[in-house]
Design a protein around this nucleic acid. Structure first.
Lengths: 193, 193
DNA sequence: CTTAACTCGTACTTCCATGTACGACTTGTG
DNA sequence: CACAAGTCGTACATGGAAGTACGAGTTAAG
């Protein structure tokens, strides 16, 4: 996104187009990680040149799309009540996360091909921290296991979510059951032996 | 691989080159799913034209590489004792699978970008069946859960293995601990509540 | 040793996506 | 309404990888 150094305010139509482009990028890259700039511009109902007017290159666009998806996710997740029994809190968190992750799993793949790993890690810091805090709290309550590395416990949640997204896409798992299956699986992984 | 219709025997040097190419393809695609034909030919110590003499296109080559990896896997896994307690059998199977899957996870990604999903499913039929049989036997013994769909139980094993491979590559998980962590995780997922 | 099989360099065509350059047209905004 | 801001089509330059064509040289096998 073009940097406005001292804030000559952006024109309303430009702002609207940027929003449409980012949204189109999220949905196109969410379907096909290799979607071309052209595809995205078309999906946004905008000329390719307009797109280049706002994003200098593919990487900038992908980053904006990923950042937007994560921002939307943060918003939804901030509303989740994480107090009380850690297992129940995790269930609530997964219920809210499921749709989000399923939607953006493919987008993340696209990002991994374009953006440096470090940048992606930074963008994910907030949601990862949220899960880590919850897992730690569960460990202190004695309801979550402590015999595996913390990073693994946190990331395996992500892998299970991604797997479920793939199973759903391949129609081997009914979307209605997905959240339940994910929750049951993750709780099993986190429970002490 | 060029089809020999009525079996004029292949020359020894050609057979050797084919083997080198397939092996190079496995290792190149195992590092970078987007490796070019040229890269692979170079890694095999062979001219690009020689490669095209044996494989008409990229897809054929990728398929040969994947098939070879799976063939090697089958060989190793056929030796595993799957009798007795299903949990112990699964532990043995995972110990042997771990290195194999870690090695070929990226190759599989490459295949998914080139080959039709159906073809990949076919190639994986044997190993998937092996896991499924074992899970079913565990269920009959009452040591594995029955409240989640069979396809999920089978595939989640794969997702955990792939996840562990990624964690290892990112150096967030020590290779020595990987097998243990995978086993503990998978056993937790499969155990009844 | 003869021959067919195989190797492999060079050079070429094709294809596709990225990114740039130009310029005319349209539309918000003060 | 005037002008800057923004749109966007056409055209072009670049670059990388795929796959083809040719042909001279090399080598295995009977």
């Amino acid at each position: 996104m073009r940097i406005m150094r001292t804030a000559r305010p952006r024109r309303a139509d430009a702002a609207r187009n940027i929003a449409r482009i980012v949204s189109a990028a999220r949905s196109c890259l969410g379907r096909d990680p290799g979607a071309s700039i052209d595809d995205i511009a078309k999906a946004a109902g905008v000329g390719r040149m307009t797109l280049y007017g706002h994003f200098a290159n593919r990487a900038e666009l992908v980053e904006a799309a990923l950042a937007d998806a994560l921002r939307a996710g943060e918003e939804a997740l901030a509303a989740v009540d994480l107090t009380g029994d850690a297992r129940e809190a995790l269930t609530r968190l997964l219920d809210s996360s499921w749709a989000l992750v399923a939607e953006s799993a493919t987008l993340l793949t696209a990002a991994q091909e374009t953006l440096p790993a470090e940048r992606i890690r930074q963008l994910h810091a907030a949601p990862a921290q949220r899960v880590e805090d919850l897992v730690r709290r569960g460990q202190e309550q004695g309801v979550f296991r402590t015999d595996l590395p913390m990073t693994w416990l946190v990331n395996v949640v992500h892998y299970v979510l991604k797997g479920a997204a793939e199973e759903t896409r391949a129609e081997r798992l009914e979307p209605e059951r997905a959240a339940e299956v994910v929750t049951a699986t993750v709780l099993s992984v986190l429970s002490p032996r």
